Simulated scan of single mutants.
Amino acid sequence: HLGKTTTVKRRYTVLSREILDNYPELASEGSPTIKQRLEIANRAVLEMALEASLACIKEWGRPAQDITHIVYVSSSEIRLPGGDLYLATELGLTPDVGRVMLYFLGCYGGATGLRVAKDIAENNPGSRVLVTTSETTILGFRPPNKDRPYDLVGAALFGDGAAAVIIGSNPDLSRERPFMELNYAVQQFLPGTHTVIDGGLTEEGINFKLGRDLPQKIEDNIEEFCKKLMSKASVNNYNDMFWAVHPGGPAILNRLENTLKLNSEKLECSRRALMDFGNVSSNTIFYVMEYMRDELKSKGRGGEEWGLALAFGPGITFEGILMRSL
Rank of each mutant, 00 (worst) to 15 (best):
V235Q: 08
Q188P: 00
F277P: 00
Y23H: 15
V196H: 06
E181A: 06
R43K: 14
K232N: 02
D294R: 14
R271H: 06
A244I: 09
E18Q: 12
N263K: 15
G168L: 15
L157Q: 09
G211T: 00
N145H: 15
T284M: 10
T193R: 06
P247E: 07
G159D: 06
H246W: 10
S264W: 01
L93I: 03
R99C: 12
G192V: 02
T5S: 14
I218G: 00
A185R: 02
L50D: 02
T94C: 13
L308V: 06
D240K: 10
A52P: 09
E224H: 11
Y108M: 08
R212N: 11
R175N: 11
S53T: 05
G303S: 13
T13F: 03
L114A: 06
K228G: 03
R177M: 12
K227A: 02
E204Q: 11
N237D: 15
L190R: 03
R43T: 11
R17K: 12
F242Q: 00
Q65D: 08
L46A: 08
K58G: 05
I206P: 00
G248D: 13
R271D: 01
D21K: 07
A55N: 05
R175H: 08
R62Y: 13
G61Y: 11
C107R: 13
L310C: 05
P247F: 08
I167D: 02
D294K: 15
S325Y: 12
A44K: 05
A233R: 04
R148D: 14
L274H: 06
R301P: 10
K299V: 01
V153E: 06
T13C: 13
D84Q: 03
G168Q: 13
L85F: 14
L114R: 07
E29V: 10
G278W: 04
A44W: 00
F286S: 01
G303Y: 03
N170H: 06
G109Y: 15
R128M: 08
E290L: 09
M289K: 01
C226Q: 04
M101C: 06
N123E: 15
Q216E: 13
N124Q: 11
N239G: 08
T33C: 07
A88D: 06
L210I: 14
R11N: 08
L54Y: 00
A251C: 05
L50M: 01
L91F: 09
H246N: 09
M230W: 04
A273F: 08
T13R: 11
S169H: 08
G140K: 11
T5I: 15
I70G: 03
I67F: 01
T136A: 03
H1W: 10
T94A: 10
E59S: 12
V14F: 03
S174Y: 01
